[in-house]
Design a protein around this nucleic acid. Structure first.
Lengths: 139, 139
DNA sequence: ATAGTTGCAAAAGTTTTGCATTGTA
DNA sequence: TACAATGCAAAACTTTTGCAACTAT
């Protein structure tokens, strides 16, 4: 996989498809996310990185942008920890280890988890996603 | 199952085992949770119910108590929604549907979900719990 | 008495919203 | 110019913490 294949290299197209203007802030945040590679980032972390890179953007805008990217399918939001959202740059089929001691996430390839039986979605609803979180602790 | 078998009927023993004193607030909150039966309650909801029942207790104490009960194994904390924790009175082996439209949880019996392959826990860690959340949306 | 516990006001976080500003056609 | 979209300050939430008050020996 070359860097050209990474989701964020197509970010301009993605933003266009989602009806989002390619503003300075969005492009800068998308670039940071692309450079970070596969990762699980909080809004706070991305905001800090932005400041470090000399990009002036408010935390509110970071949140709004992360949610817009999530809507557009460029990111996936993961909630495993009370009062903190993670945004995952890996949007392919996969699951997560959650290290409760350090509050860190680690990807598990989708092929490593086999769910051989699941109940049907309740009448009138359809499954949007199945999340498997393996919570682990230091011995 | 009679009401005497429900976890909260043993709350006095449970509190004792956990080294928690049976204070007025704890007993009142435990009683409300027991009466509610199997449910997924937020701290805010439990606090509202307490007020409704004429129990004077602060929201902070509700949070502290819910966490203490969770530590004691009387409750399980479920995090599926950004910025909101649910406390589940059902601590048996089970999973959840999450209705994204209404932010409601519904139990799935453990036997209804079969995971036939899972990766090993990373070196030096052990699995504390495997959470499966089926996210559904209204058609 | 006193050592340990508890409950809550106040503080600390996180996330969302309202609206002036900006950008586009 | 008009119209919609954007970015951020301020507001709204949720959750945690520090410490005065309380409890059980």
């Amino acid at each position: 996989m070359t860097s050209m294949d990474r989701p964020f290299s197509r970010v301009l197209d993605r933003l266009k498809d989602a009806g989002l203007r390619p503003t300075r802030q969005r492009l800068a945040l998308a670039k940071l996310l692309a450079e970070a590679g596969d990762c699980h980032m909080t809004a706070e972390q991305l905001h800090a990185q932005s400041q470090g890179a000399g990009i002036r953007v408010s935390l509110a805008t970071v949140y709004n942008t992360l949610h817009q990217f999530t809507e557009a399918g460029i990111l996936r939001e993961i909630v495993v920890d009370a009062g903190r959202s993670y945004f995952d740059t890996n949007v392919s089929d996969h699951h997560h280890f959650f290290f409760e001691d350090s509050s860190q996430l680690q990807d598990i390839d989708g092929a490593s988890v086999t769910i051989s039986s699941l109940p049907q979605a309740p009448e009138g609803t359809s499954v949007k996603r199945v999340d498997v979180v393996i919570r682990v602790k230091q011995d």
